[in-house]
């Protein structure tokens, strides 16, 4: 059998998913036995022109990690879609927008103003902000356009499979690669993770969700056996897809939600807000407000509940002031 052609590419991402690939260890060599790597900026030098010269569908499997943040990301996503038989959204950024997606609580102008003008570490006497084109004596310089809104991969191109996680676990990654390089491809849209939420796999004791106060993890002596939420510690597990193997939970850290919502949920953050509101053990408005104010995230509840999934959610971004 001819070797498969594999591409790995990143857009707006931290590179953690690449690290997860490398974390597979010797299995990378096994991967090499079944597939030729035709693009992987982390490990080898390829040029965009190399990709452009390929025939359509020349790549068998493309693992793309990262959100779509600018015009270059979009063009590469479109190019790789065109050149790939199977396009996989790898990691939380590609699947849901991930951490870069939190920028959707701001717009381009706000981000530029802070990053290039106002932040204390900035020295930009000329007040220059990124522009798509600038004239210099040598000619015209161009930059890809920085989008107002961070997008998920599937908001830009058609995506075949999803491997969530920040980063995905190496076990899961290896399993997905084995499946994708095997004879039988799973149904389109398959998410390489569990179908239920993390609570299904969590072994902590659950008695009943009734919260009289929220607490910071660092401020309490936690019961290592008991459900975090039942101790008043915000855990995103109930609204987060399982499949991570509970690596945070095993380290006594509550879930932060990187595997995104389950199949039937469009908005992980809204689900979490609804679920946590339902846990507050009071029917009296004032008492509820008192308890809610004890949430350990008073300044940033949005980023707590939408940490990895804002662009994917119904909310998608902060409302634009001039929106009709």
């Amino acid at each position: 059998m001819a070797k498969l052609k594999l591409a790995v590419y990143w857009t707006a991402a931290c590179g953690g998913c690449d690290m997860a690939m490398l974390d597979m260890g010797e299995r990378v060599l096994e991967l090499d036995r079944v597939a030729d790597i035709v693009l992987w900026p982390l490990v080898a030098d390829f040029k965009y022109s190399d990709v452009r010269q390929m025939e359509d569908n020349a790549i068998d499997i493309c693992l793309l990690h990262g959100a779509v943040r600018n015009e270059e990301n979009r063009q590469m996503a479109e190019l790789l879609r065109q050149k790939s038989r199977v396009l996989v959204a790898l990691g939380s950024c590609a699947c849901f927008g991930g951490i870069p997606g939190l920028a959707n609580f701001f717009d381009r102008q706000e981000i530029f103003t802070w990053v290039y003008l106002e932040s204390q570490s900035t020295d930009n006497a000329g007040g220059v902000c990124p522009q798509t084109s600038a004239r210099v004596p040598e000619g015209e310089l161009t930059l890809p356009e920085f989008f107002d809104t961070v997008l998920t991969l599937d908001q830009v191109v058609d995506v075949d499979y999803y491997i969530p996680g920040c980063p995905p676990t190496t076990e899961m990654l290896w399993q997905a690669i084995q499946t994708l390089t095997g004879d039988q491809l799973p149904p389109k849209g398959t998410v390489f993770a569990g179908s239920k939420t993390l609570c299904d796999r969590c072994t902590r004791q659950k008695e009943g969700k009734s919260i009289t106060g929220f607490r910071r993890l660092a401020a309490v002596d936690i019961d290592l056996q008991r459900c975090f939420l039942e101790q008043g510690i915000v855990c995103c597990g109930p609204a987060t897809r399982s499949g991570c193997g509970g690596r945070c939970l095993r380290a006594n850290m509550p879930c932060r939600g990187c595997f995104g919502p389950t199949e039937h949920v469009r908005d992980q953050g809204a689900r979490l807000v609804g679920a946590i509101a339902a846990m507050i053990a009071s029917d009296h408005r004032e008492e509820i407000e008192k308890i809610s104010h004890l949430l350990p995230v008073p300044d940033d509840p949005a980023a707590t509940f939408y940490r990895f999934s804002l662009p994917h959610s119904l909310l998608k971004r902060k409302r634009k002031e001039n929106a009709s």
Partner: peptide, 15 residues
């Protein structure tokens, strides 16, 4: 309840 999706978190019970 869609049993295939319910993870038994028990948040619904008191609502």
């Amino acid at each position: 309840v869609t049993e295939e999706l319910c993870s038994g978190c028990r948040i619904c019970l008191r609502t």
